[in-house]
Design a protein around this nucleic acid. Structure first.
Lengths: 199, 199, 199, 199
DNA sequence: AATTAATCGAGACGGTACGTCTCGTCTTTTG
DNA sequence: CAAAAGACGAGACGTACCGTCTCGATTAATT
């Protein structure tokens, strides 16, 4: 059936998300106000709510757009590949953490988004799906390395990636410690080589 | 110097935090209302705001009090000790995650608190201090094991603990996966033994 | 230009002012609480504040509505007309003075409103406009009497009315003395006949 | 009986009233805050409340001190005496009206004080007593003129003074019109000579 | 000199209302 | 239909100020 009535203005999404992104990055998540986005974007609140049922949903949309799925490289050397990948994740986190002029150890927008995910079940689900995709990529990388014989045949890939990614998030959100390529290297070394005394 | 003026009523903290804790655990972070806490605790809002300048501060105080610094056991077997410790951390996280009748994978109050820390610089600082203390305990444990010869002489204790604790937080806040003793064991195994093929 | 957006609900004004009037008359000016008005009127506080930016503004609106511009009668006998008009003014003042069960010499709500006018420039302006209208009516009455030859050709109408109305307000607000028809008659007599010995 | 205990510090009254006066005149009645007075005067709130049971009482004390009972002159010419006296009253009103940098027609502090008198029965009483004293002086003046034969033997002195003073207050508080010596002269003329056509 | 009684400074406290801020919904007119 | 405009309900937030209170420290007058 043919669509009736006035068609949606496709520019709206674009404009709104751009404004919202700017606000989040300028003033942090708390500084994002639906009314203000609507006004600045020259869009009615109605229109806005027709697309994103909640402020948090809008915020997530903003973030999701920024997080264009990171490409993963597969050089054949798992150590390098993992470090590269972690560095990309770290870069994304650092960017978000720095949103709103945030300096210092605060988690910034990263923390706020975790809060949003906690408040709204669907946002959490959405985030988890996105992370699941990312995890799948990483797990596949690890699996290929295992099959190549680079990694132990009986390794626990899920735990391995939890450890790697987890350490990054932990530092950003909890301890406030910095994350960079150097740290990623330490991380991968530690995870690959283990910590027990060589027997 | 002697304290001047009317001394603070020490019962206020007690009463307020008890009520606030009850509210958080009953209805979750969003269900915590300053007005209601004040009323139920029989305390003026002014009094409340004199001690906790913000709802977030109050919430954090509640959690901080619950998180009586977990004891650490030192059996001499680092694997057991780490698993025990991680299990304690996991238990605390699970309790908070479940606040407000929250089931399923959502981070719940844990996420909200990270958000609070992100919103308020002082809360973040306070949280980091608390975590620094906890980390110090764990790092000391690891160090003792290293000296005993259980662990590699050249290990990177900081990274090791980041990986362990980080994995827990990552699962709670990001992937929504469950954490329990079994997972703690996998975690410790993986971290101690490494994932490379050869040695 | 056509009005855009949802038009204001005209019933809101009605309901709110009715409730507010009731509260003022039951409990006096101090007993008027914005929150309570909002609740009893079944109206959101926001809506209320959109129309009256301040509790004082609301109170003034209530009074302004009650003070439906007093009609003036013109019998052709200036003495009677003035006494009638002053009695109407006195009645209004007495009603307001008695609001909130106020007995005795206190100025009651009259005083509070003068206070409100002093606090808010716009309220003062509004009140002065209203009084200007009333004065104009009275001055016209006096003027007609003058043209009829009832009053001196060179009289100072402004001063005359200031004296008449002023005496009423002075007694209500300052000395606390009662004002009634008898007093109005004394007032008019005194003003019309003068106080000097000779003529 | 001899006074027991530490005697009151007489400087306190002085300092507090000075500060309070300054605040009233700088920012108007609404800008007078007990906490601030206490702080600026270097005085505990307790001390303050021991002397003035209410903010309004304090304010009245301030005003009472300013309004040193106006002297009255008795030249033997009632017209001159009345104009002089009204001018003094007008000057006092103008001073108070101008408090807080108030320009324009607003009643300023005069209105606020009427409000205060309306709120607190005892302040009202106090004010009325003060005004009664003033009235007595004026009434005696009028009486003397009557006995001298300057004024009608059957005049209504109470009404006469109500009219004169009332007009001043009416202009200040209600119509916002200015009051000065010229106006006082018009006022007295009108009151003494009456407004009826000379027959 | 010790005691007693009142004042003073400091500041916490209860209470109450205010006015603000968002969110998300609803009701119009206009395209 | 959708979009713009903006009013509306709901509800919490944080602030302001008042007047009371509880301290410890002073300061006389009395014993």
């Amino acid at each position: 059936m043919a669509p009736r009535g006035r068609p949606r203005d496709t520019q709206v999404d674009e404009r709104v998300l751009r404004i919202a992104a700017a606000l989040i990055f300028e003033r942090g998540y708390a500084g994002l106000s639906v009314d203000e986005v609507a006004e600045q974007a020259g869009v009615a609140k109605t229109t806005l709510y027709r697309r994103w049922p909640t402020k948090d949903h809008l915020a997530v949309a903003v973030v999701a757009r920024l997080q264009a799925d990171d490409e993963i490289t597969d050089t054949g050397d798992i150590r390098t590949d993992l470090v590269d990948y972690l560095e990309k994740i770290a870069a994304g986190l650092n960017r978000m953490r720095a949103a709103g002029g945030n300096r210092g150890p605060s988690a910034g927008a990263v923390g706020e988004l975790v809060g949003a995910a906690a408040r709204h079940e669907d946002i959490g689900r959405l985030g988890r799906e996105q992370y699941a995709r990312r995890n799948a990529i990483a797990l596949a990388l690890i699996e290929r390395a295992r099959l190549r014989g680079e990694l132990r045949a009986d390794l626990d890939a899920e735990v391995l990636f939890d450890q790697l990614a987890g350490a990054l998030y932990y530092r950003v959100m909890i301890t406030g410690a910095p994350i960079d390529r150097a740290y990623a290297e330490r991380l991968v070394s530690c995870a690959l080589e283990g910590n027990m005394t060589c027997r």
